[in-house]
Simulated assay, not measured.
Amino acid sequence: MTLELLELEDQLTHLTLAPELGGSLVNWTVRSTGQPLLRHNDAQALSTGLPGKLGCYPLVPWSNRIAGGGFDCPDGWLALTPNSLTDPLPIHGSAWQQPWAVLSQSNDEIVLQLDSATPFAYRARQRFQLSEGRLTVQLEVTHLAEQAAWHGLGLHPYFPRTANTRLQAKAERVWLCDGSKLPTEQVELPVEWDFQALQALPASLVDNGFCDWDGHCLIEQPDLGYTLECQATGSDYYLLYCPVGPAFFCIEPVSHPVNAHHLPGRPGLRLLEQGQSIALTFSLQYRAL
């Protein structure tokens, strides 16, 4: 079967989407130079069929890991099973593992939709807009099941990383994690994780959730010749993933911390009744240096 790829172009950039692979964004590049603005992906990456090998994918109806084999809803326990070969816990919801349908396409916008029955009935939509070097992704989920359930949202973009990549993303505190990558306590930002001002990415592993984010993010890529100025709405948290070795990093706008379903007060989650919706938007403005 041939994989269907969708494309958008504006004056400055070019975008490729793979609806069948979890509604994923494959590549976003500068038209004049071919410079990747997200981690570049080739035919081999596409052939894996894994959204985690691509440029960005949606996190619906929750972000990151959930412990305890499930979570409580008003009508009882919702059991979950692990859904990734690389993680022992259920991770990133279910939307990224299902094919999305193309709802509409125009010169500057593509809308994708997923009607899911797993782990409960919901409808998700992604709206991709491209204009004058600005990519805007709007992610929305509507609860369709009769029984209310907890929802959260996020996006999982992968960005190129060089020795001189710098990040600004203001937050107040950060969650420390245990060996299962589950949060244990909130602490003040260590100096090497304080991105109030532009700062180089840490050399050691970071895989943590940052709290009280103002939604603004600046990524400076002097070696690659551009900056991305980003703004998120519907997202008071971000997850920063900086692996040691690979030439990428992730800053993920999310509506809730990791394992929020089991944290006091379920921070950032929304209990949705049938027909109710929540949304998250992330815009990324490309500027040449």
Rank of each mutant, 00 (worst) to 15 (best):
L78F: 02
L78G: 10
A79P: 04
A79S: 12
L80A: 07
T81E: 13
T81M: 04
P82L: 06
L85H: 12
T86R: 11
D87Y: 07
P88A: 09
G93C: 03
A95R: 06
Q97C: 12
Q98Y: 05
P99R: 09
W100D: 07
W100E: 13
L103A: 14
Q105D: 11
N107V: 08
E109N: 09
E109C: 13
I110A: 02
I110S: 06
A121E: 10
R125V: 13
Q126R: 12
F128M: 03
F128P: 05
L130H: 07
L130I: 11
S131T: 15
E132R: 15
L135P: 07
V137K: 03
Q138L: 03
E140G: 08
V141H: 06
L144D: 13
Q147T: 15
Q147S: 14
A148Y: 01
W150Q: 09
H156G: 11
R161C: 09
R161P: 01
T162L: 01
T162G: 08
A169C: 05
K170D: 11
R173Q: 15
V174K: 04
C177F: 00
G179Y: 01
L182P: 05
P183R: 09
E185C: 02
L189W: 00
L189C: 02
L189P: 01
W193H: 11
A197T: 15
L198R: 08
A200R: 13
P202C: 08
S204M: 03
V206G: 05
